[in-house]
């Protein structure tokens, strides 16, 4: 599946930009510097929006398209922001058989966003992931580092409510 490109406004801070430029300066003269720079950029911003890729392009002298090509080739790079609460729904075999698809749909409907998307307030992001190795708890979702297992679609409402305040 092709990656979604985020449409939420960019909210990077001057501190983040300074961090990014420092990371670029540190890697710039290495061979194959683009990968570690993109990894650090994603750590700093949580994703790689056009504004960030532009800074990398200018500072490293690499065309934007080349950077975008790398960012869309590797699944570790995201083009959409992660929310304050990052929800991952396991769609691995065991969870899927146990109905995680319905959990995903419920979350999607409740939050009003699709896969690889983030709510406009920046609170929740939603993504599907492959097996996280907790098949005994299928179907499983994670919210940041919390794991929720053996879910029914209705459970989604109470779980979300905890994070809503």
């Amino acid at each position: 599946m092709q990656k979604r490109i985020g449409s939420l406004p960019f909210t990077g801070t001057p501190e983040q930009e300074a961090q990014l430029r420092e990371a670029i300066a540190r890697h710039k003269d290495e061979k194959g510097a683009l990968m570690p720079v993109l990894q650090e950029a994603q750590e700093i911003y949580g994703y790689l929006p056009i504004e960030v890729q532009q800074i990398i392009s200018q500072d490293m002298g690499i065309p934007m398209e080349e950077i975008f090509g790398v960012a869309t080739f590797y699944s570790q790079f995201a083009l959409t922001p992660k929310g304050q609460y990052k929800i991952s729904v396991c769609l691995g075999t065991a969870c899927y058989v146990k109905g995680s698809g319905k959990i995903f749909d419920r979350l999607s409907q409740k939050l009003g966003i699709g896969a690889d998307d983030c709510t406009p307030d920046g609170k929740f992001s939603l993504e599907a992931c492959r097996c996280i190795g907790a098949c005994g708890l299928a179907p499983v979702i994670t919210i940041n580092d919390e794991v929720y297992g053996k879910l029914q679609p209705e459970d989604v409402d109470t779980i979300l409510a905890k994070y809503m305040e």
Binding site: I5, Q53, M64, E65, F68, T72, F73
Partner: peptide, 18 residues
Amino acid sequence: GVIGTNARGFDSHIGCAF
């Protein structure tokens, strides 16, 4: 260098940044 290969596998296609 304004065109390149985006995405991968069956989705690979020639395109521009973003």
